[in-house]
Structures are given as C-alpha cells and as structure tokens.
C-alpha cells in the first residue's frame, strides 16, 4: 500500500508536542505525589508513600482553598453571564461594517499583560485613586472607601474584567448563528422584545453560554496573580499554595497532590455546569439542527 500524505496526519506531530509538553508533566504529578522528600539533601526520593495524600485529605486548609477557588470561579462566571448577555446581544445589532471594529475593541484589553491590568486597577481603586477622588468631588463620601482595594470585591471585579471578553465572544458568536427570521416571527406574532429574548434568543444561545461559563470558570478559578496582588488578606489561592510548596517549602509531593486535586475538582465542576446548561431545550434544538 502506498503511503499517501493527507493533512489530517498533521495532527500527529501536534498531538505529540502537546502530550509531551502539557499532558506528560501533568501525568507525572501522579508519580511525584507518592514520592518522598529528603530534606537534608534537598532531593526527591522515589518511593511509594501515601503521606502527601493523607495530608491533602486531613488538613482542612487544602479543601478550603480549593472550595474558595470553585466559589470564586463560579461567581465570576455567573456575573460574566449576566453582564455578557446584554453586551453580546447588542453586538449582534451592530451594522456589519462595525462588527469587525467591535471585535477588536472587545479583544484589545485581553492583550494587555496581567501585570498591566492589575497595576491599572490599583491606580483606579486606590484610596487616592479615580473612584475615591470622584466620589469625594461629588461630596458622596468624606473618607476614602477602603474596601475598594485589597478585598474580595477587588479580586472579583478584576476577575470579571479579565474574563468578560471571553463570555461576550462566546455568546455573541452563538447569537449571530440564530436565524434572524425566528426573532422577526416572534415579534410579528406580538412578542415584546423582552419576550423574544427569553423565548428565542436565550434558549438558542445556551450552547454559547455553556462555552463561556466553562472558559470563564476555568480561567477565573485558576487565576493566581489577581487575588494575590489585589485581594489583600483574602487573596490566598490553591495556586499560591502550590507555588509556596514547590518553591519555598520544597514539598513537591504535596504540591503535586494539591495540583491534581485542584485539576480534578475544577474539571468536575466545569463539566457539571456545562451539562446542566446543555439540558435546556434550546441547546438540544441547536444541536439537532446541527448549527453548532
């Protein structure tokens, strides 16, 4: 048989790279998690020890941190969904020529570095920052509001800021795929715009919403820099703990066990949210028609 080259075969080298560079390091965590550490020689000793897993399950701080990341990610995803919908639906109403501009305006803030964004929000929310100065100017407050910076409020505002574009993009794409005649038909039959939204647009965009929720949840729950640089005392995350165990404490087995637990739990929750969203009738209708 002659070997015929086909472009589907290009998947092989790419898959090898991704497996070697991403899947293998994550899989090796399983091995590292049962090793032991020789603290005198600062080396990792191959062993079959359940010690790190015992610590993982008995010390409540780890479960607490992972739980906090899940709540934080889910909260951000929900907020992004509520705020993202009006923006995405508005974008579908733009004239065609403006849609390209709209997507650039939407995506450009994503390209600024994490550190730039964090830094900019510190300037906006600080005690002598933009918000406090403006509130003082209008005489709303006498003393600067302290909760604006270094609090859970700050963390979630910036997590929302970082991830909202992904949500808008996901909903926008699926809203553009809706047959406009369905909306027109609804309006012709006497539906108010708000009814047309809840009866037509919302059900048919649930697949987009599901993609958005999955993405925003994964990114927000996995963000370390934003909570640690803007969250103040509330900024502890499982990622910062892993960083600490890896870098400072040299407890690689525990760092591995915590990383694995975090990945499994985040993935379970993300899949759970998507499954729930895709149960809605609208999502099933979209898939039956093969529009996605």
């Amino acid at each position: 048989m002659a070997l015929v080259f086909h472009r589907a075969q290009l998947a092989v080298p790419v898959a090898c790279m991704l497996i070697l560079g991403c899947v293998l390091p994550l899989a090796v965590l399983v091995v590292f998690s049962v090793f032991e550490v020789d603290l005198d020689a600062f080396t990792l000793v191959p062993a079959f020890s359940g010690q790190s897993w015992v610590q993982m399950f008995t010390n409540p701080v780890f479960a607490f941190l992972i739980g906090k990341a899940v709540v934080s990610g889910a909260g951000t995803a929900m907020l992004a969904g509520f705020i993202g919908y009006p923006i995405a639906v508005s974008m579908t109403r733009l004239p065609v020529l403006w849609k390209g501009v709209g997507s650039i305006v939407l995506l450009t803030p994503l390209y600024t570095g994490e550190i730039v964004r964090i830094y900019a929000w510190r300037v906006v929310l600080g005690s002598e920052g933009l918000v406090n100065a403006a509130l003082k100017w209008f005489g709303v407050i006498d003393e600067p509001l302290k909760f604006l910076l270094f609090s859970p409020f700050t963390t979630h505002l910036v997590l929302l800021y970082n991830n909202l574009p992904f949500m808008v993009l996901a909903i926008w794409i699926s809203a553009e795929l809706i047959d406009k005649r369905l909306i027109e038909a609804a309006r012709d039959l006497g539906a108010r715009p708000i009814d047309a939204f809840f009866k037509v647009i919302l059900p048919l965009t649930t697949p987009g919403l599901a993609v958005g929720v999955f993405t925003v949840f994964a990114l927000a729950a996995g963000d370390m820099m934003t909570p640690s640089l803007l969250g103040g005392t509330s900024g502890a995350t499982p990622m910062a703990m892993i960083d600490n165990l890896f870098g400072t404490a040299f407890d690689w087995p525990l760092a591995s066990a915590l990383s694995l637990s975090l990945l499994v739990i985040l993935f379970a929750f993300a899949t759970g949210f998507v499954t729930i969203l895709l149960r809605f009738d609208g999502a099933r209708a979209v898939f039956r028609r093969g529009a996605l």
């Binding site: 991704l18 560079g21 991403c22 965590l29 729950a221 996995g222 990622m239 890896f246 591995s256 990383s259």
Partner: peptide, 18 residues
C-alpha cells in the same frame, strides 16, 4: 485546548518539576 484551560500556574509548575 488543554494549555488554555489548565491553570497556567499549575501547568508551569508541573513543567518546571518535570
């Protein structure tokens, strides 16, 4: 999509350890 969805901290530390 794995590199996009796995928290970057976890992925980078796993790579560094390996």
């Amino acid at each position: 999509l794995v590199p996009f969805l796995v928290p970057k901290t976890v992925l980078s530390i796993a790579q560094a350890m390996l």
